[in-house]
Simulated assay, not measured.
Amino acid sequence: MNANPKILLYILMISALGINTPLSIVGIISQIAEYFNTSIAISGLYVSSFTFTIAICGLFIPVLFSKYNRKRTFVSILTVFAISNIAIIFTKSIYIASFFRILSAIFYPAFISIALTVCEEIAPKGEEQDYITKILLGISIGSIVGLPITTGLGTIFNYQVAMSWIFAINLLSLILIIIFFPKIKGKAKSYEMPFSSLKSKEFLLATIGIMMMPIGASIVYNYQPYFLQVVSHVYTYKLSIFLFIYGLFSIFGTWLGGKLIAKRDKATILIFQLICGGVFVLLYLFANYLIPVLILILIFGILDGMGYNLIQYIESSVIPDSPELANGVFLSILNGGIALGIAIGGFLVDGFGIMSIFIFGALFLLLAFIILYYIIGIMKMPLKYS
């Protein structure tokens, strides 16, 4: 392969951004309900079906695709996304739209997992984590930039226009891959599921520990707009502007996380849980003071972005011989944790009030710290770059 690895990296980064934009329709649930003439609850299920499918399929789909030519795999998956998006744009049946949304989500873990694996393979020695971080940045930007664009197009125009921009960015990714990406062979044979690793104490404890991270973060992240409205009295365009700034801080956090892991991986993993939990406690204590609240939420934005790197790094350290599987498990944990955090947070808000999200978010991160300290500090589990 003679292609410039930097060019390949940025093509994959743009593709990761594009393939992540279907997650951005969370901001147009009311427009979806109106377009399909259905309830908000059904529209919510339609939106969340993408995340739930990724959480399930991330456990096995990447392994199934690991033996195939990388370019052919990327082109095939992006073609499925393009066809699915066309069907979603023009159908008036939410059942048909759901079928194609779930269909594309089935192949999402294979694309992201193999993109992460390819980036590590083509990276110059010593720059592996930087290359991985770029793909994670693409995922992060796809959600953060995609959300206001999709929401704006859906609100100003309609659902079909919002979905058309998602189709356009996915089509651009497909064209870039077809024209510029070289043929890269897959593995000689597909990985067998490493059941011995999956049954190991390290894997089980590490997976439980890092699952606590997206649950705790999601409890707070998904309900902080509601908190800002009912407690801090931040509304309308001010709320939108602040959440966009939060997103920019989160992108910076993803970049920062990659740098810190490459330099001090163990310290970064353990200290992260304590700092993030501490921020939640401070938000609980200073909830009635607007400026401290805004500063603390922006700090959480940086930490939230770092979480992508930490979860991927820990999982790839636990399953070092099967990178596609490790990256697939990373996607399952991330999306499964987000879904659980949303569900738990909704129960907490209904049952105990909005302030409870900070206490329970901190408790989940404390559990993550205890488990990860045990496997890293006491069991001495080896990490990839240690």
Rank of each mutant, 00 (worst) to 15 (best):
2 N>A: 11
7 I>E: 06
8 L>N: 02
11 I>C: 08
16 A>T: 14
25 I>W: 03
32 I>D: 03
41 A>W: 00
48 S>H: 03
51 T>P: 15
51 T>L: 13
56 I>D: 13
57 C>G: 09
57 C>P: 14
57 C>M: 15
63 V>C: 08
64 L>F: 15
67 K>L: 03
67 K>A: 09
73 T>S: 06
74 F>K: 07
75 V>G: 05
76 S>H: 12
84 S>D: 09
85 N>D: 12
86 I>C: 07
88 I>K: 07
91 T>W: 02
92 K>N: 13
97 A>Y: 14
106 I>A: 03
108 Y>H: 15
109 P>S: 00
110 A>N: 11
110 A>T: 10
112 I>P: 07
113 S>V: 02
113 S>T: 05
114 I>C: 08
115 A>V: 08
126 G>C: 01
132 I>C: 02
133 T>K: 12
136 L>R: 08
144 I>T: 12
146 G>D: 14
147 L>H: 06
148 P>L: 15
148 P>R: 15
151 T>L: 07
151 T>H: 06
155 T>D: 14
155 T>N: 12
161 V>Y: 15
164 S>E: 06
173 S>W: 08
178 I>A: 02
180 F>C: 13
180 F>T: 10
183 K>H: 08
184 I>N: 03
184 I>D: 03
186 G>D: 09
187 K>I: 00
187 K>W: 00
200 S>N: 08
209 G>H: 11
209 G>P: 15
211 M>R: 06
218 S>Q: 06
218 S>R: 01
220 V>L: 08
220 V>Q: 11
227 F>I: 10
229 Q>S: 12
231 V>E: 04
235 Y>Q: 15
237 Y>P: 00
238 K>M: 12
239 L>C: 06
240 S>F: 09
240 S>Y: 11
241 I>Q: 13
243 L>R: 07
246 Y>R: 01
251 I>T: 07
254 T>D: 08
262 A>S: 14
266 K>E: 11
267 A>R: 09
272 F>W: 14
272 F>Y: 15
276 C>Q: 03
276 C>T: 06
280 F>N: 08
290 L>K: 14
293 V>Q: 14
298 L>D: 07
306 M>K: 05
316 S>I: 00
318 V>Y: 06
321 D>V: 01
332 S>A: 13
336 G>M: 01
339 A>R: 00
339 A>G: 00
339 A>E: 00
341 G>N: 03
344 I>Q: 07
344 I>C: 09
346 G>I: 06
346 G>Q: 03
348 L>R: 04
351 G>C: 06
352 F>C: 03
354 I>V: 12
356 S>E: 09
361 G>T: 10
364 F>K: 04
370 I>C: 06
372 L>V: 02
374 Y>F: 15
374 Y>P: 01
378 I>D: 01
378 I>N: 00
379 M>E: 13
380 K>Y: 09
381 M>C: 13
381 M>K: 13
382 P>H: 05
383 L>K: 14
385 Y>H: 14
385 Y>P: 12
